[in-house]
Design a protein around this nucleic acid. Structure first.
Length: 594
RNA sequence: GCCGGCGUAGCUCAAUGGUAGAGCAACCGCCUUGUAAGUGGUAGGUUAUCGGUUCGAUUCCGAUCGUCGGCUCCA
């Protein structure tokens, strides 16, 4: 459990939200006296409560419930806490099946009042407010008057499984948000609105970046020319950085024989996510869900000496994974995607340095794309695992030491590692303060064993190398989605699919505009000339909407003096300058990635 | 996959149990313009698909596909 979470749970805001959930439950039960209530905690930015109701809720219901909540708050009801025995609790909640199940869990000491596994046996407490009594650990505000009725809002209804288990009943979850002041609520709603405006699916269409298509299939991305240019720029930078940092670029096929996936273990533990095999001359082949087996075979293609290590094989490898239809989401969650993958092979004595390098490289890569706020998560040894304990401890120590040395804030997820090794996940915070998980750096103790990877040591004997699997951007698709939202579609010039829009004022300026455009193209700038019959104002408007970083207005004055008049996307208007001055300015900003 | 919503022109959205309409975009003109929409006209739809109810369905019902909000899972 994170420290940030613990701090939140102690805050007044947490109490307000948790209490608002109770008030909401009271309002809902007034509407549906036979309704069943499940669980209603405070969450980031708000709260929810799950209900089992005789009918589905409509948006109108939400409004009714919200209004009733505001009335209930005005009643200034006290929240009172009481510890009771399990049998009393069962009597009290005799008609609430979900609560009874929670009481069972509490009684047996295995589950807490949210139904999560716990080691400590907690006392059973109930909280009363107004006409509502809930099985609840608290804490709450003292009185509903501490909830600001002008700072709450119900947001939406959604389905949610009881206890998050897809085999159990589907409940109706109402999400709401609550703050201390009306202004904070307003700011939060503004943020939601801003997020909607920046939604990569909306911008993806408006800026003609990518699309999906029914006939092509769900979760499969068509990168349009504009998106393709952004991707090309990302990849070009990525390639250059990797080559400069002692990576070897490799390329591997999209399919591999069944036996490969048996050796790697994927048919054992990852089959759920793999597509059905293709039969070729009586052999089964699978489309790859991961790149690692191929990279391992490249390693194995020759005898490796301890002097060769570390080896770093990098590939923008396209993989296909089965994802349930309901989870697909724009570019963020797709069925075919390209990982910016790499596998490092090193000796035990190189481990610390290798991890240092990887995290440092990762952070530098992300900084280039405008991300400066990082949060790391270290996941350690789970119960079910491969590899001996010493390896785990060494690897975990290497990961943690690196985080400390580099001063990256991190939280530890005890036992949260994959069965094959511990890992660091890196999250970045975007322009709206939202967190996205991009990089992952994980040890793999499984595959080197399965493929029997070795190197010849100084002692002339065979040794097993350590293997690190890492993706920095994650996948090109998801990263592109995050980038679109981070920049709100206004990419910095170096990434922008289109960089310069030439805006001749009248037809007589067209030839000169094209002439300048050619000059700009020669130095590598991506230029468009708007020689349509639109007025200048309309041309500017169109270029703004397409988020061109530079607009060059050309009229009689510019033509006469061999100049261009620069207008920036920001609205800033530096005015006339020579073509060379503009070239210098643009190339400098592109070079500096601003 | 599950629960719920939605699917009308390229986009954003109207309308109706009785043969669908606007704005923007597109196309063709006119205008030749100084920092976010000049103007006239033309064209564009088997109302996602399939089936059912009905004299008649785009509207009502069912299924399928897609999509949106969540749950679960994840790069």
């Amino acid at each position: 459990m994170s420290t940030k979470q613990e701090e939140y749970e102690k805050s007044q805001l947490y109490r307000i939200r948790h209490s608002a959930a109770h008030v909401m439950a009271e309002a809902v039960l007034e509407m549906f006296p036979d309704g069943q209530v499940a669980i209603g905690p405070a969450i980031e930015d708000g709260f929810y409560y799950d209900f089992d109701l005789p009918r589905t809720l409509t948006p109108d219901d939400l409004e009714t419930i919200e209004n009733r909540m505001k009335e209930l708050i005005k009643n200034k009801a006290d929240f009172t806490c009481e510890e009771i025995s399990a049998s009393d609790a069962k009597k009290l909640f005799h008609d609430q099946t979900y609560k009874l199940e929670l009481i069972e869990g509490l009684e047996s000491g295995k589950l807490d009042d949210d139904g999560n596994p716990t080691d400590e046996k907690v006392p059973i407490t109930i909280y009363k407010s107004g006409n509502f009594v809930d099985l609840c650990r608290g804490p709450h505000v003292k009185n509903t008057s501490q909830i600001n009725p002008h700072a709450i809002k119900l947001l939406n209804v959604a389905g949610a499984y009881w206890r998050g288990d897809e085999h159990r009943p589907m409940l109706q979850r109402i999400y709401g948000t609550a703050w201390e002041s009306k202004d904070e609520l307003k700011e939060y709603l503004w943020k939601l609105e801003e997020a909607r405006k920046r939604d990569h699916r909306k911008l993806g269409r408006e800026l003609d970046l990518y699309s999906t298509n029914d006939e092509v299939g769900q979760g499969l991305i068509l990168w349009h020319p504009n998106g393709g240019m952004v991707r090309h720029q990302i990849e070009r930078y990525w390639d250059d950085q990797h080559i400069a940092n002692d990576y070897d670029l490799v390329y591997t096929p999209h399919i591999g024989k069944a036996s490969l996936w048996e050796t790697s273990g994927h048919l054992g533990f990852y089959k759920e996510n793999m597509y059905s095999p293709i039969e070729i001359e009586d052999q089964e082949y699978y489309i790859k869900p991961m790149n690692c087996p191929f990279h391992l075979h490249i390693y194995k293609s020759q005898l490796r000496s301890y002097r060769d290590l570390p080896l770093r094989f990098a590939e923008k490898g396209t993989v296909y994974r089965y994802e349930r239809s309901g989870v697909l989401h724009g570019l963020m969650r797709v069925r075919g995607f390209t990982q910016d993958d790499a596998h490092h092979f090193c000796r035990p004595d190189q481990m610390a340095e290798e991890v240092d390098f990887t995290l440092d490289f990762s952070i530098n890569m992300l900084r280039a794309f405008g991300f400066n706020d990082f949060q790391a998560y270290l996941s350690t040894m789970p119960e079910k695992r491969v590899g001996d304990e010493q390896m785990w401890q060494d690897a975990e120590a290497a990961l943690e030491d690196t985080l400390k040395r580099m001063g990256v804030p991190y939280e530890v997820d005890e036992g949260g590692g994959a069965f094959y090794g511990p890992k660091i996940d890196l999250k970045v915070r975007d322009a709206l303060g939202r967190e996205w998980q991009l990089s992952t750096i994980q040890f793999d103790f499984n595959e080197p064993e399965r493929f029997d990877l070795t190197y010849i040591g100084e002692d002339g004997k065979e040794h097993r190398p350590y293997m690190v699997h890492r993706a920095l951007l994650g996948s090109m698709e998801r990263f592109f989605g995050v980038l679109i939202e981070h920049y709100g579609g206004a990419f910095p010039a170096w990434l922008s699919p289109k960089q310069v829009m030439m805006i001749p004022i009248a037809d007589r300026h067209n030839d000169y505009a094209h002439e300048v455009a050619n000059k700009l193209k020669e130095v590598g700038l991506r230029v468009t000339v708007d020689d349509s019959s639109d007025r200048m104002n309309a041309k500017i408007r169109n270029a703004q909407k397409q988020k061109y970083p530079y607009m060059l207005v050309i009229g009689d004055r510019e033509m006469e003096d061999s100049q261009v008049a620069l207008r920036r996307r920001s609205g800033e208007n530096p005015g006339a300058m020579s073509v060379d001055a503009f070239i210098a300015l643009a190339l400098d900003e592109i070079e500096r990635k601003i």
